[in-house]
Design a protein around this nucleic acid. Sequence first.
DNA 1: GTAGTTGCAAATCATTTGCAGTAAT
DNA 2: ATTACTGCAAATGATTTGCAACTAC
Lengths: 148, 148
Amino acid sequence: MGSVEDLFRDYLGKHGLKITRQRELILEEFLRSPSHLSAEELYLRLRSNNPNIGYATVYRTMKLLAESGIASERHFGDRQTRYEPNISEEHHYHLICNNCGKIIEFEDDKIDALLKSAAKEYNFTLSHQRLELYGLCSDCQRESMQSS
Amino acid sequence: MGSVEDLFRDYLGKHGLKITRQRELILEEFLRSPSHLSAEELYLRLRSNNPNIGYATVYRTMKLLAESGIASERHFGDRQTRYEPNISEEHHYHLICNNCGKIIEFEDDKIDALLKSAAKEYNFTLSHQRLELYGLCSDCQRESMQSS
DNA sequence: GTAGTTGCAAATCATTTGCAGTAAT
DNA sequence: ATTACTGCAAATGATTTGCAACTAC
């Protein structure tokens, strides 16, 4: 079954909230969109097919998705809150430049394996993870050499 | 010497920025305060000893501390950006329970080594890192079995 | 029918910015 | 001297909220 959709319906049910067409539309669009979208970007995408969906509804629904554990809120350089699906299958990690904010995504099976075994050691069943390495990218290292 | 202070002075120097009394005061207060303070909270603390320090100056300086790698911006439940000192010597990672919020800290030299080599591969000079594993702790796994 | 939801517009509030005076280089 | 910095007040802009109409239950 569409397990993520079911998870959301379960969450709504258990909390006395209702399953509405807007909530389903927003979840679907969120799942099919690239990661790291902001509420506004999601709103614009939805808007093109559903001209009368509300701005506030997207905000409210994204908040629900975060509370239900389906999405995580993330903050990068800019002012907006961005959302990322919590899909345990995908393990991509981030290198983030302290200076220019550039974000490089990478994957690493050996890291994956170590994380799994660390979780096991503490009897955790992993749902998702976040790994961020901060530092200076090669461009910004060069830059900070020049300015004397 | 007070290495963090020196780091900051270096950063300022290399970027053609000036070392001012306000910047030094803010860094000192940041270092002696509990972690996870917001710019506003820091401003209020500073204000009590330095009645005419400006709100905007605190914001601008915290931004510099983040850019220089001395502090990290974090976001928790509320709307404010909170700051955390980056102590590069310490590499502790977090296991966080989705259900009860329990946080377990752990360390792992093998993970450390892999992270370092991943950064190297992309020509990043690492300043600090964040690793969070989300899932269900052993207690909460048991619990979720019960509810059908 | 009842209680939660929506879309809109207005409000909020953390953060940013313009500016004239001040301080570091 | 020159250029960056500060404090203030005003501006910005992402997010939230009040409300009357609507929809899921």
